[in-house]
Design a binder for these strands. Structure first.
Length: 489
RNA sequence: GCCCCGUUAGUGUAGCGGCCUAACACGCCACCCUUUCAAGGUGGAGAUCACGAGUUCGAAUCUCGUACGGGGUACCA
């Protein structure tokens, strides 16, 4: 195989989304597999659509997912700069070269005139498109017009007939009639290039060997190929990736539960899990094993496994995979990660209440009960902050409140004894409560349910006996007392 | 409108002319385990392989057509 050089070339028009990250992931994996280079290039040739901060977020997203690139705007490289707005001279020169060679020409039609033209074409039942207005005007005339201050663009001269074909490495041969392609703009009136020009020049200058990009580019590939031809340079290989949709088969958006990569980070997803899930969208390992770490993924990644039909984003499966990754973590690892996560995702007051030393004991208890980091705090909050259970929660089978008062008082007494005996191991707590339950002839779930509600303030909690041990018997007693008082009033 | 791409259970995929009365995973349902919730285990429902023609002894797999979905058709990328 030739020297593999691939690139991820987002435009900074918003926060990076799943689809973009998947494109990055596949490019990255391909480069890693063949010991090639992975390049980040920022395509910021549309200054109107630019969103502040998105370059930062793109880089942050890549870092978070550990998709490390070998060359890029922030780290440099031999073939930079890697931000298109810093390369405008190259594009301008090339566009002029194309005029010199007779393969491009200037045009001074304004956007308003163009849109009027399109309207006319549509109402006349014709296909809308540039009609070649300036194609045969003299260069002198057009230059004169530009000098007078008319906004002028440069358009590529597309042959009026003939075909352009290319081989997509996954989909096979694609053929396009050039007669269907109008003379498109390669350099805008503001002097900046369009995607078509910039992308071709940069892929060539940066020695890109393979272009893995979204399916939305298929139709413009012949345009790019034409530029390659006019410039007499060899195009890279192309592989178009299927799109990712939401449940209703429309373009993925927030409504579908998809978030920007930055939000995923904040919502307690593990980058390794997200990577694993994304890898499965539009690509298949062709085996029964779907859980794979990045090394396995790189090893297995190939074009044959790429699918050609769009896939639909499924937040449930993503969540499941995240759970798998959480469960496979070491307790200590999860503990560190959780603590950091809590630090930046709870209020100051809440975080201050968290006793780090208790976390070591708590984590093993909740590890298999959470599917993402944001579920941790609600589950462990009671260890640090007491929340009164509602009166409705102080139930025990069909016992009435006076009977429940007796039961609670009894538990309190038992716990007091344990405090005096200085043995608060959960095995002992369990032994005592089970024995008590037997004496009372209650259903264990009713009995423990009542105690759970009083101690944790919730009907859902980590295992009760362990929880009480970690919480401390004294605190448990005080909470039981509070519920008892509440019941009496 | 025109051009291009696609179509296997709700979802992601496997399948590359006979092994397919279609497999795996998520989700769903039931049961088991169980102090709640999970996790785990077992089992189940769910796809006339979009539809119609053809090629073939034989088609989810090849060919054509239709339908549907999507992408493109910008001085957006």
């Amino acid at each position: 195989m030739k020297n593999i050089r691939v690139r991820f070339a987002p435009s900074p028009t918003g926060d990076p989304h799943l689809g973009a990250m998947r494109t990055a992931l596949f490019n990255w994996a391909f480069a890693k597999k063949y010991k090639g280079k992975f390049i980040l290039r920022i395509e910021d040739t549309d200054k109107k659509r630019q969103v502040k901060g998105s370059i930062k977020n793109i880089i942050e997203g890549l870092k978070w997912l550990e998709l490390d690139y070998d060359e890029g705007p922030d780290i440099g490289g031999d073939l930079g700069p890697y931000t298109q707005s810093e390369r405008s001279e190259i594009y301008l020169n090339t566009a002029n070269k194309l005029i010199d060679s007779g393969n491009a020409y200037m045009c001074d039609l304004t956007p308003e005139e163009l849109s009027k033209m399109r309207e006319r074409q549509i109402s006349a039942g014709k296909a809308p498109g540039y009609n070649g207005y300036s194609r045969n005007r003299s260069r002198e005339e057009l230059e004169e017009s530009k000098r007078k201050g008319k906004p002028t663009v440069i358009r590529l001269k597309v042959p009026l007939s003939g075909q352009m074909e290319f081989q997509d490495l996954r989909r096979g041969i694609m053929k396009f009639d050039l007669s269907k392609i109008d003379d498109f703009v390669i350099l805008k009136a503001d002097g900046l290039p369009t995607y078509h020009l910039a992308n071709v020049i940069d892929d060539h200058k940066m020695k890109i060997s393979h272009v893995l990009r979204g399916e939305e580019w298929i139709s413009s590939t012949p345009k790019h190929l034409l530029i390659y031809k006019y410039l007499d340079i060899t195009p890279p290989d192309f592989i178009h990736l299927p799109l990712i949709f939401g449940k209703d088969k429309t373009k993925l958006s927030k409504r579908h539960g998809a978030k920007s990569i930055i939000e995923y980070k904040e919502s307690g997803l593990l980058p390794s899990a997200l990577k694993n899930y994304i890898a499965l969208l539009g690509w298949s390992p062709r085996s029964d094993e779907e859980i794979m770490n990045q090394h396995q993924f790189i090893e297995m990644f190939d074009f044959e496994g790429l699918s050609i039909s769009p896939s639909i984003f499924d937040p449930e499966k993503l969540s499941w995979i995240n759970g798998v990754y959480i469960r496979s973590m070491k307790d200590s690892e999860l503990e560190d990660l959780s603590y950091k996560y809590l630090q930046s995702n709870t209020s100051k007051k809440e975080f201050a209440a968290i006793d780090k030393s208790k976390l070591t004991d708590i984590i093993p208890l909740i590890k298999e009960r959470i599917k993402s980091l944001d579920e941790i705090f609600p589950l462990i909050k009671f260890f640090f902050i007491h929340e009164m259970p509602s009166i409705e929660m102080l139930k025990c089978g069909n016992k009435d409140s006076s009977e429940i008062e007796v039961i609670l008082q009894d538990v309190i007494n038992e716990f007091e004894n344990l405090v005096h005996s200085k043995d608060s191991r959960h095995q002992i707590i369990e032994q005592v409560l089970r024995k008590k339950n037997e004496e009372l002839g209650l259903k264990l779930r009713d009995y423990l349910g009542l105690i759970r509600n009083c101690v944790t303030g919730s009907t859902i909690s980590p295992p009760l006996f362990e929880s009480i041990e970690i919480l401390g018997l004294k605190e448990a007693i005080s909470r039981l007392n509070l519920s008892l008082d509440n019941l009496k009033n």
